[in-house]
């Protein structure tokens, strides 16, 4: 009984592990796909993060205005370079989202369609395009005043 149970366990384990090797045809599709992150995108993100950060640091008083201006000039240049590089690397995605598989794209399209049909009365920020929440007088994402009429 025990021997039988042990044998079953052993065989099952060996089968599960060896199956991909024994039947490679089923499992051979290109599974080692490209890395989903890329140095160019990372560089763009770093530059954008740097810009955001100095803005916040100035607001919290960690950076003098003078330093801020100089650093902003510098990182703006860097960020633009990084953006151009990202465009060059991914010419098909001008706003440089993450490289997405076709399935993801379709899904995203469906999702966005569903989103828009579901929330017909929803307002969007004219500055950055994100959906408005709460009182809707300011955009929660970018902070822009939305010039909506005050609520009745």
């Amino acid at each position: 009984m025990l021997v039988l149970a042990g044998l079953i366990i052993a065989l099952a384990a060996v089968f599960v592990v060896l199956e991909p090797v024994l039947r490679p045809a089923v499992w051979a599709p290109d599974r080692l796909a490209a890395f989903d992150d890329d140095a160019t995108l990372a560089r763009r993100d770093t530059a954008l993060a740097a810009l955001k950060e100095i803005e916040f640091d100035r607001a919290t008083g960690k950076l003098s205005d003078e330093d801020y201006e100089r650093l902003r000039a510098k990182y703006t240049t860097e960020a633009l370079e990084a953006l151009r590089a990202a465009d060059a690397a991914f010419p098909d995605r001008l706003t440089a989202g993450p490289p997405a598989s076709a399935a993801d794209t379709v899904e995203a399209l469906i999702a966005s369609a569903r989103e828009s049909s579901k929330s017909n009365g929803r307002k969007y920020c004219i500055e950055c395009g994100s959906g408005l929440e709460g009182s809707g007088r300011f955009c929660v994402e970018c902070g822009a005043a939305t010039k909506l009429a005050p609520r009745p």
Partner: peptide
Amino acid sequence: PTAASRRRAAPAGYVAQVTT
């Protein structure tokens, strides 16, 4: 945060991809 922002950034990118 960065991933979230990319997701928000994504729709424009997808549109571009579909139109090409």
